[in-house]
């Protein structure tokens, strides 16, 4: 047992014994003790209820956070996969243009490449409210 608590309880025991040694009416003590016991029992039960509520709220919050995270992970995976495929296709276009001296095709390919690179992959989830709304409304996103 924790030494500090142990010591305090022992102090209480000693003092209690001293008081019991001829200074306290046992019946009155018992009644007072029961009143105190009832009060403490109420406090203990109240605190138990609070703890149950705290745990329930925590679990609800964690569930929301995990749902956001799962959505975010899924979104990032699909977005980057799609972008990677598009970049590969654009480089094929660019390589082909360089090989065939097609300036127009080269200009178009590089321009598309720069535009796609400049487009933020995070733009869809830029607004967290939109994400939350999507989750609350169970919106299905097409990628």
């Amino acid at each position: 047992m924790n030494k500090h608590v142990d010591k305090l309880i022992n102090q209480g025991v000693d003092l209690g014994i001293q008081q019991l040694q001829g200074h306290i009416n046992p019946v009155n003590t018992f009644n007072e003790l029961l009143t105190l016991y009832k009060d403490v029992s109420v406090t203990i039960e109240t605190e138990k209820t609070k703890r149950v509520q705290i745990i329930a709220e925590k679990e609800a919050k964690i569930e929301t956070i995990r749902a956001q995270r799962d959505f975010f992970m899924e979104y990032l995976k699909k977005t980057f996969d799609e972008r990677s495929t598009n970049f590969s296709k654009l480089f094929e276009v660019i390589d082909d243009a360089l090989e065939n001296n097609n300036i127009q095709q080269l200009a178009l390919g590089l321009d598309s490449l720069n535009k796609l690179a400049a487009e933020s992959p995070f733009k869809v989830i830029a607004d967290i409210n939109m994400l939350q709304n999507a989750l609350e409304n169970k919106t299905e996103f097409e990628f």
Binding site: G12, L20, L36, V40, T43, I44
Partner: peptide
């Protein structure tokens, strides 16, 4: 600390 039982009860309340 008041008495043996009260000590235990008070500790129970605070620790809860």
């Amino acid at each position: 600390v008041v008495a043996i039982a009260a000590t235990g009860l008070m500790a129970s309340s605070i620790m809860a």
